[in-house]
Amino acid sequence: MRVNFTVNGRPQEADDVWEGESLLYVLRERLGLPGSKNACEQGECGSCTVRLDGVPVCSCLVAAGQVEGREVVTVEGLAEYAQQRSRGTGACGTSLDEARWWSAQGTDSGTGEGTELAPVQQAFIDAGAVQCGFCTPGLLVAADEMLERNPNPTDADIREALSGNLCRCTGYEKIMDAVRLAAARQGEAV
């Protein structure tokens, strides 16, 4: 079957999709967006978390056909999404100005140094919340959405909001640090 939907503000079409395929598979294997991760494919780890019409969901449990006409934001689009939110435009998609701005930034081809990041992405790097990094994309999408809803979370709030995202490397302490840091920076910026 064919599926048309929007990913990170850009219209996408996937063809010859097998009806049993998940949104996760379509993103990773058909659209060249492997940022959403395939750790369990049973909704028990959160590494594939994306926003579907704004709501964080496990993309492994969304049938590809269910996203027809819907909007998806993945970790690859998180920086842009956060940027638009902070500008208050609310809309997705890249304006001409933004496109020029993007190309004007020098980035390091190797490490992506210089890449514009969402505050929560930068906080994960700065706090040492990334080790193997396989849980990171899902955690970032979930944490970013929580901070959008709840800019001043308690520790218990953070833990509850991230309780669907498993991490095997860090013991979560530096993930807590990162989210606290992102919240604090977000507070300063306002």
Binding site: G20, C58, C60, A63, Q66
Partner: peptide
């Protein structure tokens, strides 16, 4: 029938079930 997919998709992903038809209710 499939809506949230939280049961059905696990069964499909793990090859426990191959329904002839999926009925999307979303």
């Amino acid at each position: 029938p499939i809506a949230g997919g939280t049961d059905v998709m696990v069964e499909i992903n793990f090859d426990h079930r191959r329904p002839e038809y999926l009925l999307d209710l979303t």
